[in-house]
Design a protein around this nucleic acid. Structure first.
Lengths: 192, 192, 192, 192
DNA sequence: TAATAACCGAGACGGTACGTCAAGTCTTCGG
DNA sequence: CCGAAGACTTGACGTACCGTCTCGGTTATTA
């Protein structure tokens, strides 16, 4: 195990900063997420933040990752059930205060095209990976049509919840998740 | 016809400003859309801009409206065809340079919650209205299932294209539109 | 009379900033002369300061100029009297609170070699000009030796007071001025 | 002979640091004399520096002392000759690259009023001590007027060279030294 | 021989200031 | 009243430096 020389970074700082970002977003919205405010809230100096993340965008992405990390759906033996599980997991994540603002900030940040963009791309890929697995499992199992374009279908699954939340600015609820589950099951499910 | 006293507003300004916003976004990205930059590019003074739009957010929304304005799909006698028409119209709009950044900026701006938010909401509602009409026409016609939740379905239609563009950061293409058309037709179409 | 377009600069700002610098130096020393502190004290914004002076060094020089501006000694008919007048004028200037710190800051600032250096050089030249005039007047009058190197003599006149103040860190007093007057009069005066 | 326990300090460090300060000042000016830069240049760590000098000011003073250390003028039997020897010694010291900046830095540092100030005062006193000795020797010998204020005269001797260098920002040369010698000899010398 | 204490390089830390930039307002002039 | 031009406030940005502290490791003196 290689060890870099010099004083090691304090773990406390990383966690405190990310928490501060989430708190500020939840309590006062995206506009309150100032580097100074984050530093003050976290009880940390600005340079300590910039040592970890090259810019505000990267920090936002990192904060978002702690919110909507990798979710993992086990094999439930049924595509519809797994699909619902995926959507329910998202539902929970989106219900947490500040998630909308965080996502909105993330989207804006991802357009700048610095080092942040790579991290963002990897993040999105990772997020959608589980949905693809569920679809592929369904195909293997036979309750998803063999001809389905998996990538397009994954988009169809992931999009509505975020759209409702971020574009329509309305918290998606369970009836909505149920409705989406039903429609997508019809869209990609194997005919009886 | 009432006439305010003093020098009337020059029509030239409004157009020049909106064009400047679109140009800047397309050429240099969202970060280049500064009020000063817009003013300089449009050959216009800043006060002239603020006289027309109360803030940057509103200006962004106005610029977005010129891009993805109201689209109107005529009755083609077939839901699937009309759905495809809706998606193709979006496809064209999204293909124009700078649309991604514009949308991203719009999303970020919409979170601030000033006067702009109302305009944003009206804009989104208007955008989705046509899709709802198409769905309702399909129900009336009988080629869309009667039990479909129209609002949820409208979200299902609008979301994938924007998601692919803004979240996945990939330009949606015609095969994708075709695939989505097919899936949604299965999702909400009346069974044969 | 040419008039630049746009809103003219407020005279208030320039004066308020220079006063703020002098006040801060006098009250809390050189270390308290922060651009933020100056801005706050002057009731002015930082950009307004940077519009007028390219950096902190230039601001310091400008502030020093208001303190030890051009002094003018009239023809008193006697070299010794005029010499004493020059030294007394300096004495008064140096007695004002904060002058030491200001001079020390000036010296440090003058080493950086930006645009500030030119201003500094002009300032020093101007300061020493009056002393040279006094010397030249003395030569013409005959109570200063004809062979005296005027530039060297001017340095001999200007140096002791500043040295005592800045290097020895002691406020020069009248006995000191009298002693210096006497010694320099002997050094450059014409023999009786 | 008391010996502190633990690993003794490496002599190498002290010398390397002082050299680094002098080199940096000479090559890139006062602004380049950063504690980090000094440490890097000397191949030494920052704590190793702070173990030896309590702060930057003290380090600057220490560096200056290596440049303009104690000079000792032997009894040459003649005031004028000794005076010239003093000024020539200074001339040599001032000619070394970076001395101006070093002095300027010293002056600025001496205003801060920490622990460094004491060291600075002692340094100045020591520097001027030799000049006082020369003057007192002259009085005893009889080639300096008995009534001369020794302290004021010492200032008169020390000031012009530094003033020319630091304030006028011009390297004092031998003609200047000769001229100053002549004038001061007239100022304080005993009449023939 | 082992323990201890002070040293060493490397580098992260808090704090504070710097100089810049953008948003939105205000002021001058001329049309 | 509208227009351009540009100065203004506010407040955030990202960077630089200072002096301290924490590592892992080394070197000498003491037990």
């Amino acid at each position: 195990m290689e060890r870099r020389p010099g004083r090691p970074r304090e773990e406390r700082v990383t966690g405190a900063v990310l928490s501060a970002v989430l708190d500020l977003v939840a309590e006062q919205g995206l506009g309150a997420v100032t580097m100074d405010a984050v530093a003050a809230r976290a009880g940390v100096s600005k340079p300590a933040i910039y040592r970890r993340w090259p810019g505000k965008h990267d920090l936002l992405i990192a904060a978002a990752e702690t919110r909507i990390g990798t979710l993992s759906v086990p094999d439930l033996g049924d595509f519809r059930a797994e699909l619902r599980a995926v959507l329910d997991a998202r539902l929970q994540a989106y219900r947490m205060p500040g998630t909308v603002q965080l996502l909105a900030g993330l989207i804006a940040a991802s357009q700048e095209g610095g080092e942040a963009q790579g991290a963002y791309r990897r993040y999105v890929t990772r997020i959608m990976g589980e949905t693809r697995k569920v679809l592929e499992r369904g195909i293997a199992r036979g309750d998803v049509r063999a001809g389905v374009d998996v990538r397009a279908a994954a988009t169809l699954v992931a999009a509505p919840m975020i759209f409702r939340l971020v574009i329509e600015q309305e918290l998606p609820d369970e009836p909505f998740a149920a409705e989406v589950t039903d429609m997508i099951a019809r869209a990609v499910g194997a005919p009886a």
